[in-house]
């Protein structure tokens, strides 16, 4: 990594990687479901935002997260502002969690993540059905929450390598 630091541009690019990944994921809405499994979907931006805001990574700007939310709404076709609201709620939750945590613990983080995504998906479901009269299947939200919760551990391992590389 010292090589990266010497080469300014590459280091900057490396440090901006999470936010670039966030924008790519909202523009592309990663699916990974090539086998067309009926009960499979997960929310990658939730995992990404939760992890990097919890770790307070440099260059992970809240305003960019907000813009990513707006893009996600446009791509998915949701009412403008709902994803931004969800993403900012994650940021607030992680900020609060960071403040009250003295000794970080993986299990605690993981279950706090489950609580937050459940809360956000509930709020989203309520807003979409009550105020925008969308017909949404509740089980699809539940499945999404479950798989997002499970996939957190997998992506956590990958992101840790990234953090390690950034700190070295």
């Amino acid at each position: 990594m010292t090589i990266l630091k010497q080469k300014g541009f590459y280091y900057k690019l490396y440090s901006c990687l999470p936010i670039i990944l966030l924008f790519i994921s909202v523009l592309n809405e990663f699916d990974f479901n090539y086998l067309n499994l009926k009960f499979f979907s997960f929310n990658f931006p939730f995992i990404l935002i939760f992890f990097f805001t919890l770790k307070d990574v440099k260059n992970f700007d809240y305003s960019l997260v907000f813009i990513a939310g707006l893009i996600n709404d446009t791509v998915v076709g949701l009412p403008l502002g709902i994803s931004s609201f969800s993403y900012i709620i994650i940021c607030i939750a992680t900020s609060y969690f960071r403040n009250i945590t003295i000794r970080p613990n993986l299990t605690k983080d993981w279950f706090f993540f489950l609580f937050i995504i459940s809360l956000i998906n509930s709020i989203n479901y309520t807003i979409l059905t009550l105020f925008f009269s969308y017909d949404i299947l509740l089980w699809s939200y539940l499945v999404n929450t479950f798989f997002t919760f499970l996939f957190y551990l997998i992506f956590l391992t990958i992101f840790r390598y990234y953090i390690k590389g950034l700190n070295d």
Binding site: F66, L80, I82, S84, F85, I88, I89, C91, S95
Partner: peptide, 14 residues
Amino acid sequence: FSLLSLVFVSLFTL
């Protein structure tokens, strides 16, 4: 920006 202001902006947009 502070998170509070961003929450307000997103709610306002919504």
